[in-house]
Amino acid sequence: MSRIAERLPAMRSSRWFRLVWIAPLAIVLMLGIVLGAQAFRGSEAGEQFLATYPGESHLPEWAPVGFPAWLAWQHGINAFLMVFIIKSGWLVRTTTRPSMYWTRVNGRPIRTKNAPKKISIDLWLHIVTDTLWLVNGVVFFVLLFATGQWTRIVPTSWDVFPNAISAAIQYASLTWPTEDGWVNYNALQLLSYFAVVFVVAPLSILTGLRMSPSWPRDAQRLNRVFPIEAARAMHFPLMIVFVAFIVVHVTLVLSTGALRNLNHMYAVSDETNWVGFWVFVGSIVLIAAAWIALRPMTLRVIASTTGTITRN
């Protein structure tokens, strides 16, 4: 007991000690939300609200049904790149002494104030994967609007908002809304995808570009309008939003009919079989292999094709 008493002040000062209080409060809060949602669903007002707004906003009659092959490819490439964008971004933020630095080779002697800037190898990887992700995103946007697939993730009616509330109540009450992603997403999914594609992704690109070495440092008016401090304050929270979205997205995919959902995005099919699952497993193996392969020595070889690598 004396040892515990001696260590108690140190335990209280630890940041992990806060979890002792946060965890029970989070459990009580979640329990309250579930019970509240269930009570509302059981009330007359709740039944009328859910009957009026079942959680799904109707698409235009001409909206496409199902997913084309190009969207499946886009989804897989995006997932692959996002893993390394998040990994390299985290390393840029947390690594105090990078193992290597990269300097762009411009074919001229470095004598001017505009000489190429030396950056860490982690930042180089972050910029490269971001650039590939941006190219993939441009192709996605072009095909999205050229094929009418935009109707699945862009609100076309104001009733999407009460329907999103309805879907949230159904999720919170643990009686989840009926899933039929092959035809139409529920309103909460639609708004989530819209926010990620048209708000979070562009802001991530803009703030990342603002912090990159390629941003024009002499553009004083532009820099006053969009200071680098604002970009730094926004960029990391935007990454957290992406991570939270991915966690929730994968959880719902696997818990609301995994085989059918995986077939939608990995086999371009509405059937319930194992084809999409094995393609998904193959993509995970590919990501894991790339993660293992991208060791410092490998990065050094790849990065040296576009610049000079130094230890300091």
Rank of each mutant, 00 (worst) to 15 (best):
M1E: 11
M1D: 07
R3C: 01
A5K: 14
R12I: 11
S14Q: 08
S14N: 15
F17R: 05
V20W: 10
L25K: 06
L25N: 09
L31W: 07
G42V: 07
E44K: 15
A45M: 10
Y53R: 05
S57R: 08
S57F: 02
H58E: 13
L59G: 05
E61T: 05
P64Q: 10
G66N: 05
F67K: 06
P68W: 10
W70L: 10
H75M: 05
H75V: 02
H75F: 14
G76A: 11
F80P: 00
K87E: 07
S88W: 10
G89Y: 01
G89Q: 07
R93T: 07
M100P: 00
W102H: 08
W102P: 00
T103M: 08
T103Q: 13
K113W: 13
A115L: 02
P116T: 11
K117M: 10
S120L: 04
D122I: 01
W124E: 03
H126E: 03
H126R: 10
I127H: 08
D130F: 13
W133Y: 15
N136E: 14
L143R: 07
T151Q: 09
T156F: 01
S157R: 12
S157H: 06
N163K: 10
A167R: 03
I169F: 13
Q170I: 05
Q170T: 04
Q170H: 09
T178S: 12
N184M: 04
L188K: 09
L191I: 15
F194I: 09
V196H: 10
V197Y: 06
P202R: 06
L203N: 05
S204N: 04
I205G: 04
L206C: 03
T207R: 02
G208A: 07
P213W: 11
W215Y: 09
A219C: 01
N223Q: 12
R224N: 08
R224C: 02
A231P: 04
A233C: 00
P237I: 01
I240A: 14
A244N: 01
S255P: 00
T256P: 00
A267M: 02
V268G: 04
V268W: 00
G276F: 03
G282K: 11
G282Q: 11
I287Q: 06
W291E: 12
I292H: 14
I292V: 15
L294E: 01
M297R: 15
R300I: 01
G307N: 06
G307I: 03
I309A: 03
I309R: 07
